[in-house]
């Protein structure tokens, strides 16, 4: 067991901070630029990288990530390219957690066994599929488990607390991705007022680390979240900054 994700969260905890989980859409603005940005994030303090796979129908995403996905598709970037990129990142960043973040169809379409072999070969630690809830995930987990690849479950604002334990069960080396708001991905000026209590409640029942995402774009928001969760996820804000500047540097990180 490599347990890179578990170790990444443990390391952050030891340093009395929330783990920084960084999302990027791979292939945006170009495949090379997204790879360089992932390197910059890993070197600049990201504990876990989420590598977003572009998809033609990104129905759970807000404007920033959708635009990035469409551009990445125009650049000809597909799941197999993101897996190959993950393999290169793995050789350069042996300790960083790497999560492959995808809609389900590209993964399913590749053939689940074939996908799982490729992901294992690339050194991917866990997979997150936006549209694969607890009820449907077993077929994917069945190919991930024997290869020691984890699965990252999403917890929504309206997920009953009884369901959190089930969602976190049997997912291997992973964390719970707590969605802070109902809606699509993207920066919000304000996070919900009951978020702290909700995160504490989830943390109380979760056997794996808990990280919050959707809407987090500033250091201040990350700090607030880190008081009540084991980590925070930043996506759209990074994708936007990368798109504007063409590269990511240390000072652009929250």
């Amino acid at each position: 067991m490599k347990n890179r994700i578990k170790n990444a969260f443990a390391k952050a905890k030891k340093e009395s901070r929330g783990a920084f989980v960084a999302y990027l859409t791979m292939g945006y603005p170009t495949l090379e630029a997204s790879e360089a940005a992932a390197d910059a994030l890993a070197e600049g303090g990201a504990d876990v990288l989420e590598l977003g796979v572009p998809f033609s129908d990104p129905f759970a995403d807000g404007g920033v990530i959708r635009s990035a996905a469409y551009r990445a598709l125009e650049n000809g970037v597909a799941l197999k390219d993101v897996i190959a990129l993950a393999k290169r990142l793995r050789t350069r960043h042996p300790q960083t957690g790497i999560v492959l973040f995808s809609y389900y169809n590209p993964v399913f379409s590749m053939g689940l066994e074939r996908f799982a072999d490729a992901a294992a070969d690339a050194g991917i630690d866990a997979v997150l599929s936006v549209d694969l809830p607890y009820e449907e995930r077993e077929e994917l987990l069945a190919v991930l488990r024997p290869r020691d690849i984890g699965y990252v479950p999403l917890i929504a604002p309206n997920t009953p607390i009884e369901r959190v334990g089930d969602s976190a069960d049997g997912v291997g080396d992973s964390f719970l991705y707590v969605v802070t708001v109902k809606g699509t991905t993207g920066a919000r000026t304000e996070l919900p007022s009951d978020l702290s209590a909700r995160l504490e409640a989830i943390r109380a029942v979760s056997p794996i680390p808990v990280a919050a995402g959707f809407g987090i774009s500033t250091r201040a928001q990350a700090d607030v979240v880190s008081r009540h969760a084991d980590g925070y996820i930043v996506g759209s804000a990074l994708v936007r900054r990368l798109g504007e500047a063409g590269e990511l540097k240390g000072e652009m990180l929250p």
Partner: peptide, 12 residues
């Protein structure tokens, strides 16, 4: 068939 949706839609 099935319910391949974002977690937020499972409750509704």
């Amino acid at each position: 068939g099935g319910q391949y949706v974002a977690e937020t839609l499972m409750a509704p």
